[in-house]
Design a protein around this nucleic acid. Structure first.
Lengths: 340, 340
DNA sequence: TCCAAGAATGTAAGCGCTTACATAATTTGA
DNA sequence: TCAAATTATGTAAGCGCTTACATTCTTGGA
């Protein structure tokens, strides 16, 4: 005795019509007379019929499904944007398939292939760093995709993001204006992560403009967690040349840094200034409030969906959209203590 | 000029073999001679061939794909468990399809149907509350599913979770032992959420055992966000009969409460005790550290995957697993101030 | 050297659906 | 009232893959 899943044919037989009619009832109801439609619908409900997606995709060559691959789901960074992305797609009756790559390029590649072979009609990707072949795959198959969370002008590819370098540069500039000269950085792992990289570059650029040597600028790369942020902070503060400001690549690391500062009995910003990046909700519960960079997560998600839908209609369409960020002037960033 | 996606047949033709051989190269490599296998694999790479998932699912009647539907992705509650779930599945080469329902039962139902028709081999669901038809659908089709984040003994269905009522009861008991009598609750919306409901029930049970009237116990239902937690806290503290302790249904609401307490110039736990639930990372950055209930997220995710995989092999298999929670004795919970 | 057993490959029948096209039923206008 | 136009339904050819079964090619032992 097998599961015995009802098929189109079962419905057709039971309703005394052809499979074509049943199919039309579901996909083009107005091509069917009200009478038969109601009859068929009743049978569908009675039998608990659900179309077989594989067969449907195979026959119709489209799936009304979009895919998104984010580096991680373990934190709030992508969540808000993704939510907006999904909502926008939902309005069009489309479904979202979500996968996370754990910041691993190979995993991401596998998942892109998986989503593609699953028939995703379009893809949302984070950042620009991936192999040439993957781009070729996507472009050869005319699969619309949009890159988010980073901005990079490109003649054919679409993206919606912000300038990580500039945002970070501005925040560093602010710190310099306050009089800081001894910087340190706690960054997310830089490899294969153009966002993290950009943020570090922005800081360096600002420092170099002020002729501050970045040769021995301390940069700790640290995986995404409060605990790691705390450890990195401790390491930096125990080094011989203590910085007066530690700029973190994201709010989570900054939260860890602040936490450890308290634990070490250091005052923020009295003894040490700390900055974050992303402006996730977490930033708002930290004491003192975190100086960070606000990123338009929701807008990014929504616009990404819009671009994708436009590309569906017109494959030629593309758009490079740079969104604005703004500095959140939290209390964790202030003038350095006087050095006597 | 169409996308011109290579098919099995294209590969077969180019390699001078039959489609069956190519198919075997991918699914049962040891049935093919090394020679042909290598030849075929080269062509596959050259053509950039990717199997068509729909066709594959249609022909093979399995997808090696599992689905999970969580109420929300906007926070860390489900993230850690989901990550573990995915990792465990990944070991078996399976893929995870993720959807979020926004705590809406109808949306969840739609998504279950969507995942089912997409051919999910198994499903991870959160909580027990859903329509009878959905359970029937799943059971009629012999689709293995496992319910997580709540424990409920059941003769045929599988679950892995913890006892929300008992955990909450224990935490309330602790508060009672400290001398609290004036309680208030900030809960997640109770409708269609057996976890939230259980947590409230647990508190009530503890109170009733101490003959504290729960008839006019103040309960504010509040959507999941720090901001909402803060607002609810403010409302409670402005009411005529101030509680000495506010127990929150989750850590995020508790974080909002603590934040607002600071803003209102109230000392925690001096003026008011606050408790959370879930023990997400956020809880660790709050000052004072949050008294909360630790939930074994990762174990839950991992075990859920194990159960599902076992059910795949043996449809009769099922398991009701209750995991332990433990109280995190944070500083946000202490004796109430003396009433003079 | 020859033949049976085993390994490698090919053949072809679906899987459940959509849709172009053909046919049947109904409506319309004069 | 009847042919033409319109609407509703049926027929059947795939979509790209897997796999049972049939066929062909290798082996190795007698």
């Amino acid at each position: 005795m097998k599961p015995d899943i009802p098929t189109l044919e079962d419905v057709a037989k039971e309703a005394g019509v052809s499979t074509a009619t049943v199919s039309r009832c579901m996909n083009a109801p107005d091509q069917v007379s009200k009478n038969t439609r109601e009859k068929v619908m009743k049978i569908i409900k009675k039998l608990g019929y659900t179309p077989n997606f594989g067969a449907q995709a195979l026959a119709a060559k489209r799936t009304n499904t979009f895919g998104a691959i984010v580096p991680t789901m373990s934190n709030a960074i992508f969540a808000a944007g993704l939510q907006a992305f999904q909502e926008e797609l939902g309005k069009q009756g489309a479904t979202l398939l979500l996968a996370s790559s754990g910041y691993d390029l190979e995993v991401e590649e596998k998942q892109i292939r998986s989503l593609v072979s699953r028939g995703a009609d379009g893809l949302l990707l984070i950042g620009t760093q991936r192999s040439r072949e993957i781009y070729r795959l996507l472009e050869d198959r005319r699969i619309p995709f949009v890159i988010a969370w980073n901005y990079k002008k490109h003649p054919t590819r679409s993206c919606v993001g912000f300038d990580n370098v500039a945002a970070s540069y501005n925040l560093a500039k602010r710190a310099l204006d306050l009089g800081h000269t001894k910087f340190a950085i706690i960054s997310a792992p830089l490899e294969h992560n153009d966002r993290a990289e950009g943020r570090v570059i922005g800081i360096k650029k600002a420092l170099e403009e002020e002729s501050i040597d970045t040769g021995n600028l301390q940069i700790i790369e640290s995986n995404y967690s409060i605990e790691n942020g705390a450890e990195s902070f401790e390491a930096l503060m125990k080094s011989k040349s203590r910085p007066t400001i530690i700029m973190c690549g994201n709010d989570v690391l900054a939260a860890g840094a602040v936490k450890m500062a308290h634990k070490m009995g250091l005052s923020v910003p009295g003894d040490i200034s700390i900055t974050g990046f992303d402006d996730i909700e977490l930033a708002s519960v930290i004491e003192p409030s975190l100086a960070t960079v606000h990123v338009p997560h929701k807008t990014m998600g929504r616009v990404a969906a819009e671009i994708l839908l436009k590309k569906m209609e017109n494959p030629e369409y593309h758009s490079n959209l740079k969104l604005d960020t703004r500095i959140i002037q939290g209390q964790s960033l202030a003038m350095p203590a006087k050095v006597e």
